[in-house]
Amino acid sequence: MTVHTVAPHRAARAARRRGLALGLLAWLAGLAFFLPVAWMVLTSLHSESDAATNPPSLGAGLTLDAYREFFDSAAGTGPWPALINSFTASTFSTLFVLLLALPAAYALSIRRVRKWTDVLFFFLSTKMLPAVAGLLPIYLIAKNSGMLDNIWLLVILYTSMNLPIAVWMMQSFLADIPVSIIEAAQIDGARLPSILARVVAPVAGPGLAATALICFIFSWNEMLFARVLTGVTAQTAPVFLTSFITSQGLFLAKVCAASVVISLPVLAAGFAAQDKLVQGLSLGAVK
């Protein structure tokens, strides 16, 4: 009798201990991910000389000087043109990507074209060339067509860079939509546009949101092309961020403040779409 009661107790205790250990591990992993961000925020609130000390002075007084300098950075230009450029490039490219990826994914998952797997891999193969390998030809084309330092060039580039990823993501989301829903809509006389808008889009909403956010983040953070192809008018936020780095003086606090401000839009978008994201990213995980 005692044997029967003790064993489940022990098992439950062991399970609880295991759960506790796993929980602790998860917390540690979470902290490890969060620590660099927290460090960045803390450094951004220090004065330049406190930010540069080694070993770091954690308890140093807090100040908003770095943010003040960031916002009225010399000559009254400030970060706004760069932020607006980044916003333009990211928003429009995300919009175009979604407009193009949704029908493409539809043709690869719901109403499959012939050899759809080949098509899918063709999309992916365009990502296999390292981006830097395309840099020189793109620079020369941009220069000769007068598109250098033009934000719409970045919109086109980001659209084409993110399209394959978006098609892949959307394809897997749309593949999960039961065909019977679409057939039901068809029987009710719905045509393709209204099927897309009124049946597919709501069901694939979380997936769409996840895709949009990923495309937005990728374009917002893109640095390689932006650095080479922009100059006076089309400079984006990441390029502007690097302009605070100097070899003659202290800059850590300013760069951290700039990084915090520049990360905010992406963070805000992430928080806003959080519940959709979790749904979206786990969509297709369980069949």
């Binding site: 598109m147 033009n150 100059g231 006076v232 008018t233 089309a234 100097t246 070899s247």
Partner: peptide, 21 residues
């Protein structure tokens, strides 16, 4: 539209500088 904006007009000069104080 972007193209016209970037080429600018009138009296301007574009300067590229190193970030020194």
């Amino acid at each position: 539209a972007g193209g016209t904006a970037s080429s600018g007009g009138g009296e301007t000069v574009n300067v590229l500088m190193v970030n020194n104080p």
